[in-house]
């Protein structure tokens, strides 16, 4: 019984630094698992569209012809469904969250331009593939002609 049971705690708190932080002047401390916003490593992204299908709020939009991947950070509910579903593991959840703004905005990422070596390698691979297909088609045509001639 009695009163003023909180005196000890109040006096102690008088001489301790405050439990709150002057956010946003002071940066918040994030943990390694903090959920902020999702970002994509465009070099690895194959624009397969799985993240768009898994997103429960339809925040992600993938445009294969334009080679862009965009996300509406204000719609994202940080559920990590896309991060877990990505087959190339190119999506990551960054800890810092989207700041408040007056209008909603979308973040669009483009696939990076290929370097000259990568372009040459890609063209060489495509040329080789075309030659292989042409050779196989010629061989098949020769086989069909031979079969027709023998009948």
């Amino acid at each position: 019984m009695g009163s003023f049971h909180l005196t000890k705690m109040s006096l102690r708190n008088l001489f301790k630094k405050p439990a709150t932080k002057m956010y946003p002047v002071v940066a918040p401390t994030y943990t390694s698992r903090s959920k902020g916003h999702v970002t994509c490593d465009m070099k690895e992204c194959i624009l397969c569209n799985i993240c768009e299908k898994r997103c429960p709020t339809h925040a992600i939009a993938v445009n294969k012809p334009d080679e862009t991947w965009s996300i509406d950070n204000f719609s994202c509910i940080q559920c990590l469904s896309c991060v877990r579903a990505c087959p190339k593991a190119c999506l990551t959840m960054e800890p810092d969250y989207t700041k408040a703004a007056f209008t909603k905005s979308t973040v669009t990422l483009h696939k990076p331009e290929l370097t000259p070596e990568e372009k040459a390698a890609k063209e060489a691979a495509e040329k080789e593939k075309a030659e292989r297909i042409a050779k196989a088609k010629a061989a098949k045509a020769a086989r069909d002609a031979a079969a027709a001639a023998s009948e």
Binding site: G2, S3, F4, H5
Partner: peptide
Amino acid sequence: EYGELLKTFLKDRS
């Protein structure tokens, strides 16, 4: 610390 709060809730006259 929680013990101090508990004491206040359960024993304080007011």
